[in-house]
Design a binder for these strands. Structure first.
Lengths: 343, 343
DNA sequence: TGTTAGCACTCAATACAAGTGAGTGCTAAC
DNA sequence: GTTAGCACTCACTTGTATTGAGTGCTAACA
C-alpha cells in the first residue's frame, strides 16, 4: 500500500514527466513547493516506488520515469477530475453551432477539432451504420441491366449500391417493388434487412411481382450492408510531432498502423464510458509506446459510435479525459435532440 | 556538349546511384565492364561533368551524386525506352481482370497495385467528376423538409446531395419535376447543369410546376457539383521506408503534405502524356527531395484523370515511367471500351 | 594528344580518452 | 523519521587520432 507521501511523489513525478518529457530526479523534486523534503528522503521514497513498479530508470544513474503500472495507477486513482477549461469549451462548441444535418459531417468535424486541441491524433468511429434503421429505399433504373439502389437511414446516412438486373424490367414493375420494399422494410435495422427480405417481402412479391424469385435473389445478393463502419481521422500526422517519437523506425510503424492498421477493431470493442489503454495494453506492437483514450457517443440510450484520441503514453491524460467526457456527452445530447426528439 | 564517353559515365553514375544510394567514386566506376578506363581518366571526366552541373559532391572528397540537372538530362535523353517486365505485366493485368463497373473502384485498385509494385506512393486523381455528363437524376423525398438528390453520371459515379425543401411538396409534383429534369439535363456536363437549369428548365417549370421560382432557387443552391475531385492513395507510407528519407523533420513535412497538402492541384495541372517533376521543380518545399511522375488516362480522347507516383529524386525513373505508360494506356483502353463502345 | 600512375590532400566516420553534471545508493549523524 | 555527506554510475560532450574512400594535380607514357 502506498503512503500519502508516496502518492504525492508519484503524482508529481508523473505530472512533471508529462509536461517536460525529462526523467525527474530527486533534487528537482525537492525544490518543488509541494514537497518539503530533502533529496535524500525523496530518493528513499523513489526507491520504494521503483521497487513496487510504479516508476523506473532509463539507466542506472538517471532520474525516474513513470512505468506503465505508474500511469495506470495515475489514471485510475490520482487523476483529479479536472474540469475542462473555458477556452476549450468555446472551441468544442463550434462543432455544435453549425447546422447539424449529416451525421458524418459532424463526426468528421469532431475529429478535426479534437485533434487540433490536443495535438494528438483523433479517430472517430461511426455512426455504426449497421445499427441504423432503414428510412427509405429507392431503386433508379439506369439501363436495361443496371440500376442504383439508394438507401437512406434514420441518422441521415446515405448508401449507394449498383445493382445488376438479369433482364430488362419495366419501370412500373420496379416502382411496385420499391413501394413494397419501403412499406415492409421501413424502420428495420439494416442488419436485419437480409432476413426480413425473404420472410416478409417474399410472400408479397410472390403475388405481385413477376419473376419474383429472381428479383429476390438479386436483392439478397446486392443489397448487403457494408460490415465495416467508416473511420474518420483528425490530425493523422500530429503524433509525428510528439517528441516521444524521435525514432524513425517507430514512426514508420506508427504511421503504417494509422494508415493501414485495423484501428477500427481495436477501438470499436470499447463499449461505454471512458476507456484508457496504456502502452502494451494495446496488443498492437506499434502502439506499445502509445495510449488510446476512447469514449462512446450515443443517440438516446444506444451507443452509436466511438471517439478516440491516440497519443504517446506520456499523454496529458487529465486534459484528454476531461475533453472527451465533455465532448461525448454534448455530442450525444445534440444527436439525441436531433434524431429522436424532433420526430 | 557532352561527349559519348561523358554520356556513358553520367548514365552509369546515375544508374549506380539509383540502385545503391551511395555516392559513386572513380575507382568503383572504372571496375565496371562498360568503362575500360582508369580511375584517373574518369576523374577528369567527372570533373568536367561536375563543372557542367550534371553531378555534384556531397563533400569535397566524396564520390559523385547526380544533381537535379543530371536527373533531368537522364530522364530526357538517357533513359532507355525500357520495356516493362513480364512479371510486372502480369500484376498490372489483375486490375483489369475484375469486373469493371464502378470507375472509382478501378481507380482505387490501380493506386494500390502501382504502389505495391514500385514501393513508392501512388496518387490517382479522378475520374474528374465535373467533366462527367449527367445520366440520371432522382429526388427522393424523406420528410416534409428534406429530400435526397441522387445524381448518376455516365462514368458510373454516384453523387448524393441532401436538399432542403421550403415547404411540403407532394410527391406527384416532385416526380413531375424529376422527369422534366431528366428529360432536359440528360447528357449535360455536370459543370453546365447550373446554367442549363435556368435556361432550359426554367421555362418549362414556369408552365408546369407550382412555385417554380422557389423550386428553381432550391435546385440552384443545393445542386452544385463538388469542385474537388476525389484523390485516391496507395502506399501512403511506402515513401517512409525509402532510405533517402532518414531525417525525421523531412518525414514529418512529407507526411503532412501527403495527408493535408494540396497534391491534387499539383498533379492535376499536368495535362496529357508522361510528365516528370524532379526535386525543386516541385514548388512545394517538402517535396524538394522528391520526384513525381504523372500520366493521364482517358475515355475516348478525353482525359479524365491522372495517375502519379511520388518517390525520392533517386527514383527508378526507367521502371516507373515504363509502368505508368503501359498502365495508363491499358486503363484508357479498358475504360473506353467500357463506357463508349458498349452503348 | 589522350591516358595513366603516383602522390599529397581532404573529409566523413569511427574509436578512444577525459571531463562534466545530474543522478543514485548507502551510511552515519541529527 | 529525516537529512547530510560521500562514493559511484552513466549519458553526454569535447578533443584527438586513425582509417579509408575519394579527389586534384602533375609528370610520365603510348
Amino acid at each position: 500500500m502506498l503512503t500519502q507521501r508516496q502518492l504525492n511523489i508519484l503524482q508529481i513525478i508523473i505530472d512533471d514527466f508529462i509536461s517536460t518529457n525529462e526523467p525527474v530526479g530527486s533534487r528537482s523534486l525537492s525544490k518543488k513547493a509541494e514537497i518539503p523534503y530533502s533529496p535524500a528522503t525523496i530518493r528513499n521514497e523513489m526507491a520504494d516506488l521503483e521497487e513496487m513498479g510504479y516508476i523506473e530508470k532509463t539507466h542506472i544513474s538517471s532520474g525516474r520515469v513513470p512505468s506503465e503500472k505508474g500511469y495506470r495507477y495515475y489514471v485510475d486513482h490520482l487523476l483529479a477530475p479536472q474540469n475542462i477549461q473555458q477556452e476549450d469549451v468555446q472551441k468544442l462548441k463550434t462543432v455544435f453551432e453549425e447546422r447539424l444535418i449529416e451525421l458524418e459531417q459532424i463526426v468528421q468535424n469532431s475529429a478535426r477539432i479534437l485533434s487540433e486541441m490536443t495535438n494528438y491524433t483523433a479517430i472517430v468511429l461511426g455512426p455504426a451504420v449497421h445499427d441504423n434503421h432503414l428510412r427509405k429505399i429507392q431503386i433508379m433504373p439506369l439501363d436495361k441491366k443496371t440500376a442504383v439502389a439508394v438507401i437512406v437511414t434514420d441518422t441521415g446516412h446515405i448508401e449507394n449500391k449498383m445493382i445488376y438486373l438479369q433482364d430488362g424490367y419495366d419501370s412500373a414493375e420496379i416502382e411496385k417493388m420499391v413501394s413494397i420494399l419501403n412499406e415492409r422494410l421501413q424502420g428495420v435495422p439494416l442488419t436485419q434487412i437480409h432476413s426480413k427480405l425473404r420472410q416478409e417481402v417474399g410472400n408479397i412479391f410472390k403475388e405481385r411481382v413477376q419473376d419474383y424469385d429472381q428479383v429476390l435473389g438479386m436483392l439478397e445478393r446486392d443489397l448487403y450492408v457494408p460490415s465495416k463502419e467508416k473511420v474518420f481521422y483528425g490530425g493523422k500526422t500530429n503524433i509525428l510531432s510528439q517528441p516521444d517519437f524521435n525514432d524513425i523506425g517507430k514512426i514508420r510503424m506508427l504511421m503504417q498502423v494509422i494508415e493501414e492498421g485495423n484501428l477500427y477493431e481495436m477501438i470499436a470493442k470499447n463499449k461505454g464510458g471512458i476507456n484508457v489503454k496504456i502502452g502494451t495494453e494495446n496488443e498492437n506492437l506499434a502502439l506499445n509506446d502509445c495510449s488510446i483514450v476512447t469514449a462512446t457517443y450515443s443517440i438516446g440510450d444506444q451507443n452509436i459510435g466511438t471517439i478516440a484520441i491516440l497519443g504517446p503514453t506520456r499523454m496529458e491524460y487529465a486534459r484528454v479525459i476531461g475533453l472527451l467526457k465533455y465532448f461525448s456527452n454534448h455530442l450525444s445530447k445534440s444527436l439525441t435532440d436531433l434524431y429522436l426528439e424532433e420526430r
